[in-house]
Amino acid sequence: METKTLAVEGKRRATLSQPLILVLLILAICVVTTIVNPRFLRIQNIINIFLQVSILGVVASGIGMLLVAGQIDISVGTQISLMGVILSMIMQKVLALPDGVVSAWRQALAIPLAIVSTFAVGAVLGLINGITVIKSRASSFIITLGFMSVYHGAALLVSKGASYMLFGRFELLGRGRILGVIPVAIPFFLGMMVIAFIVLKYFRYGRFLYAIGGNKKASYVSGINTNRITLTGYIVVGLCNALAALILISRVGSALATTGDSYALDALASVIVGGVSIAGGKGTALNVFLGVMLIGLISNSLIIMNVNPYVRDVVIGLIIITAVTISQMTGERE
């Protein structure tokens, strides 16, 4: 009986350690930044940090669940760019922008049409990625690297390299504030985190993601349709990207062929730093959330501390490398 309780405690300590380290790291960054610039702690800045990470968080929730299944999608950034361009072009066409003189039903239809099309495109892109990864049996990293380039080119082709302005016609999602205080985007971010939490913990689908990521062969022998689960994972990523594209374009107010490109690196960085294993089978919504907050905080604190903004990408790159090295070393010990 004694050994039993001991072992249980040991286990608990082991699972807590990673989020705990992240929380401590986040607190440390907060303390240092506050000392350098006390404005960091203002409620306005804290809301700002959440707003800044909300798009990243939406992307990371999708890709985090995919990583749990042992797959990766590095085309998320260019997917978002492509969807941003398509959605802005639809708005422009339907509303006949920049003049904007159209009938009332076209006014009413524009936004719903843009939203539905964006989600449809997101689902299709996820479907294409997923089917190709499954059918080719190649590494998902290489396949989605290829698609990253394909979607980038597609965005350039569709937009002809031009920028598409929305002239303030689609601002609620990215710029609106609930009661004038809380940005509308934040509930979407937190909502996605809650959904990811529930799916991973309580859904059969979530359990299968862990099983496939942990051992695909054993999962198949145990009756799991591994291809279908993997495919669903990619479609979920596409849908999350669609939501991210909607928030992003609404916030920026215009679309270029490269508007969303940077989200691939940041989202992967968040998920990996948060402690979701790239080998699959490990990671929770809490890991994703803390990773997103850490990446967001680093960006924010560098700005607040007046550090050259170009340093940011160097720092984030180094953080990915450090996180993967640490998890590799602890993984090998097992």
Binding site: R207, Y210, A211, G214, N215, K217, A218, S219, Y220, V221, S222, I224, G281, K282
Partner: peptide, 15 residues
């Protein structure tokens, strides 16, 4: 091909 080694006993039992 029998077990998901990195996951807990109960998850393997119910898989």
């Amino acid at each position: 091909s029998g077990l998901v080694l990195g996951r807990p006993v109960f998850e393997n039992l119910s898989l």
